[in-house]
């Protein structure tokens, strides 16, 4: 049975807190740019930017980053991952970049995202915001802003479902098929 870990309200509250933390840590919105990792991270980055705008009365740029071309498993995959658009609306050199993703797991996507970002310019720093941290890191990567820490087993999957993708806002934990 899939277990609901967060509902619409929980997600919204977590994002609200994260938006405040981002502003607090960076002392405002100066030189700040949010970059969402395709696809889940993109919606969350847009939501965070909206909240930051509400709190600070200042808009900040939001970019989309596709990491398919930077993955570390391209030499072992049978079928290559779908390539989506990368659109970062500004020069990232000297900006403070907050990478946004839905779930932090092994850390390999974040490694790929950092390489992809570095090819776009030389940011002043890169911070990481994730809605869910489910543990099991395989690389030395840590999030700066976390919506919710959730201890998981490797046999479980965490799904962040969002309205932008046509479902209800919720986070669910599921046993992988055949592991009951």
């Amino acid at each position: 049975m899939p277990k609901e870990l967060m509902n619409k309200k929980d997600i919204d509250r977590a994002l609200m807190r994260m938006a405040h933390e981002i502003i607090e840590k960076n002392r405002g919105t100066k030189k700040l740019c949010l970059v969402g990792i395709q696809r889940g991270g993109v919606h969350l980055a847009k939501r965070l930017a909206l909240k930051i705008k509400q709190f600070e009365k200042k808009g900040i740029p939001v970019g989309l980053l596709d990491i398919a071309l930077y993955r570390d498993d391209l030499n072992i995959r049978k079928e290559q991952p779908v390539v989506r658009r990368t659109e970062v609306p500004c020069e990232i050199t000297d900006l403070k970049i907050v990478l946004v993703d839905d779930v932090l797991f092994t850390g390999r996507s974040i490694r790929a995202a950092m390489d992809a970002l570095m090819d776009l310019g030389r940011p002043a720093c890169i911070q990481l915001a994730v809605l869910i941290d489910r543990g099991h890191r395989e690389l030395p990567i840590k999030a700066d802003y976390v919506g919710k820490n959730i201890p998981t087993a490797l046999s479980e999957t965490v799904q962040v479902q969002l309205e932008e993708e046509g479902s209800e806002d919720k986070v669910i934990l599921e046993k992988m098929a055949g592991e009951e």
Partner: peptide, 16 residues
């Protein structure tokens, strides 16, 4: 379309 994004950058190369 994703690759066209790459060609528009200063670093027009990916490690893929």
């Amino acid at each position: 379309a994703g690759f066209k994004d790459v060609l528009g950058r200063d670093i027009k190369k990916v490690p893929t």
